[in-house]
Design a protein around this nucleic acid. Structure first.
Lengths: 212, 212
DNA sequence: ATAGTTATCGAACGCTCGTTCGGGCAAGCG
DNA sequence: CGCTTGCCCGAACGAGCGTTCGATAACTAT
């Protein structure tokens, strides 16, 4: 059976073409395990042997699901940003009548919420973009840019009529800096109160850029 | 001749004990080259062979100056934070009568200024702390904590009397997030105006946390 | 029962890595 | 002059890497 592919990449995608449910389940489970190993040790030190052994299978068994190590990394990053963007769009659609400030809070809430549920994946995305090359790199970059643009448009709206000339591009990058740096210090035991974390960070950012 | 050592670590330090000036010069030059290679390719992919070849010497020659690859990484991070802290202390001493807001601006100015002058080193520090182990990791962490504490004290002062309960710990981490994420998007040609970058970022942060 | 597909494995190949070893060459000093 | 010392090298070693190959059971459809 021919494998379904992401157009223009040649990497397979699960759950979309006659493969068995067991296959899809195992595929997703192995990808989750791989994200944990890569988050813990970094892409280069996370060998296919370690990933296979943590997933309870042989190296050759791993290659039944993924055709290369880079594909594993690509899929983690692609799916992570894909679901990040999809969730954000859903939230923004549901709250489209809200103020720009409320929608920025939605962005922060979405990002940190996803972060808590998929800590290893987010860490991998924050650190390993540059470990991809060629088409895989471009495809992930495209998703990131989409995510960035959605956010920057809200920031543009929030800055409207500000007397200070604030660069919304820089502001968006500052926001992502705050949010993506979280993996460096976050500890579920110390910072488990997600609501509080969201409020503090979005508070700093919103008060920081709001016109006065 | 016995090599001088950082107390408790066992790693050598240049410029402090009877070695020739050529040695110190070459040592520093090789370390700068190593920082460039590691910033470009990541610690694991940056092989000793590549570092040696970019520095114009053989692998074995490299081992005359450094006793392991991890030592190279340690020295880059240790010296970078060392000089970052030293410069910051100097600036803060010179501006000790200034307001907390002005001193936060000094922190941002110092960090980004150092960033522009030592882009590869800062990138290495932002990404490769976890590639260190044991004593080297602890020693670098110690320097980072010192840098963090200096900054957080100023933030504490800036938040004094704020009616909102703002967590200065989170605020400091948010600031470092903004500043350290810069390596992900900074382009000297697009963002060459350092003064403007400093003003925008410190503006966002200060307005974000200042009591109102 | 037979043929084909799915999921898995052990073993190996070729390569790169960090590190070491023994030596060599030039400068400075006795 | 001979000898030490500072600086540097070619070559090698053992380990770990990503990837491939052929084989093997279990299941499914004919």
């Amino acid at each position: 059976m021919k494998k379904a592919e992401v157009p223009g990449i040649g990497f397979p995608v699960p759950g979309d073409g006659g493969r068995t449910p067991q296959y899809d389940e195992r595929f997703a489970a192995v990808l989750t395990t791989a994200a944990q190993v890569i988050a813990d040790e970094g892409y280069d030190r996370a060998s296919m042997r370690k990933i296979a052994s943590r997933a309870g299978m042989s190296i050759a068994g791993l290659y039944y699901y993924f055709k290369s190590k880079e594909e594993v990394l690509y899929l983690i990053q692609f799916y992570t940003f894909d679901s990040l963007v999809k969730n954000l769009k859903d939230r923004l659609d549901a709250g489209s009548q809200e103020s720009a400030e409320a929608r920025i809070r939605l962005v922060v809430e979405n990002h940190l919420g996803h972060f808590l549920r998929h800590l290893p994946e987010l860490k991998v995305c924050a650190r390993e973009l540059e470990s991809l090359k060629g088409d895989a790199y471009e495809k992930v970059l495209e998703r990131r840019r989409e995510y960035y643009l959605i956010t920057r448009e809200i920031i543009d709206e929030l800055c409207e009529g500000s007397q200070q000339q604030l660069d919304s591009n820089l502001a968006a990058l500052a926001l992502f800096g705050m949010l993506n740096w979280v993996y460096m210090w976050f500890n579920p035991r110390r910072h488990g109160d997600l609501k509080r974390l969201e409020e503090q960070l979005s508070g700093i950012f919103i008060d920081g850029i709001r016109p006065r």
